[in-house]
């Protein structure tokens, strides 16, 4: 613990280092990207992906995985572009019901000891179906206030950057710094000992699922704020992207090892990967390939750091 660069520090910095390297590469290839407008273009879609990644991370905290988050975000987007605009009270009520549904899902999975992968997979059909009922064909219109927030011309840097940093810090405080956050993460690390100390595992699981539901809502609303209209299939890709983002950000699949700041950085890195290719004049066909490649490289680096640590 005496040396300055401990393996853990290196591991924690890995997401930030990957993001920095990618940004520098982009600025080198296209110096004009280093402007307000350029950054705005580059990071346009980072915020909704970051929220979806945080939702996924909440599930990972308690050793679960959500294969339905993409469809859920799409459903929220559809509500946002219809009910929330036309009948705001009903829209808000529907969104609250969504969070309640996520909490109930957490309770069901915990009480029946079900595999989260299959349950959330089934739910992905339900969310998609609901989205199609709300909005059978692409369309709708985002409420003006969401649009106004998402296109807010903030000074110095684009809104996305301020929002990402703010969200990362808030979630960091909730999960990493608060007293109950320690218990929530403890459930992922050693559920039995947390239970032995008198905590309710059910309550912890329901809390994390409800949080995931809340972040899913933020993701959907942020998305329609950017796209102005919605579509049931608009966010299906988010399911896999959010898993990749959370892992890229230093999260681990089991054991309650998560990092909210890392998750936001991971999501941003994945967003940038696509832009990076277009600056290299490589066909956008390779965009998701680059995302997979970055994921593999970062995981490989993590293994190397762990090996160095073992020595």
């Amino acid at each position: 613990m005496s040396s300055l660069m401990t393996p853990r520090l290196l591991r924690n910095l890995l997401p930030a280092i990957s993001l920095t390297v990618l940004l520098l590469a982009i600025f080198y290839l296209q110096p004009r990207a280093m402007s307000y407008l350029g950054l705005n273009l580059l990071l346009n879609l980072a915020l909704p992906i970051a929220f979806a990644t945080l939702a996924q991370m909440c599930m990972m905290t308690v050793n679960d995985l959500d294969l339905g988050i993409g469809a859920y975000v799409g459903f929220v987007a559809c509500i946002g572009a219809t009910f929330l605009r036309d009948t705001p009270a009903l829209g808000v009520l529907m969104l609250l019901a969504c969070v309640a549904a996520y909490a109930a899902l957490g309770a069901l999975i915990h009480l029946r000891n079900l595999p989260s992968i299959v349950v959330t997979l089934g739910m992905s059909f339900v969310w998609l179906g609901l989205a199609l009922l709300v909005l059978p064909t692409p369309g709708g219109k985002a409420p003006d206030w969401i649009r106004a927030i998402m296109t807010w011309k903030t000074p110095m840097l684009p809104f996305t950057i301020y929002a990402s940093v703010g969200v990362a810090l808030i979630v960091h405080i909730i999960l990493m710094r608060s007293a109950y956050g320690a218990v929530l993460r403890g459930v992922g690390g050693n559920a039995r000992s947390v239970e032995r100390a008198g905590w309710s595992l059910l309550r912890a699981k329901v809390t994390m699922y409800a949080l995931a539901g809340v972040f899913g809502i933020f993701s959907g609303l942020a998305l329609i704020g950017l796209t102005t209209s919605a579509d049931a299939n608009i966010a299906l890709r988010y399911t896999l992207l959010s898993i990749a983002g959370a892992i890229l950000g230093g999260g681990e699949f089991v054991g309650g090892r998560i990092s909210p700041i890392g998750a936001v950085i991971g999501a941003t890195t994945l967003t940038l990967a696509g832009s990076f290719l277009s600056f290299l004049r490589i066909s956008p066909d390779w965009q998701i390939g680059a995302q997979g490649g970055i994921l593999i490289i970062v995981l490989a680096l993590r293994i190397l750091i762990n090996r160095a640590e073992a020595k």
């Binding site: 349950v119 997979l121 089934g122 992905s124 059909f125 339900v126 179906g129 609901l130 199609l132 009922l133």
Partner: peptide
Amino acid sequence: GFRLILTGVIIV
């Protein structure tokens, strides 16, 4: 929409 919802409900 209903078809998908029912499929999902059956899986769950």
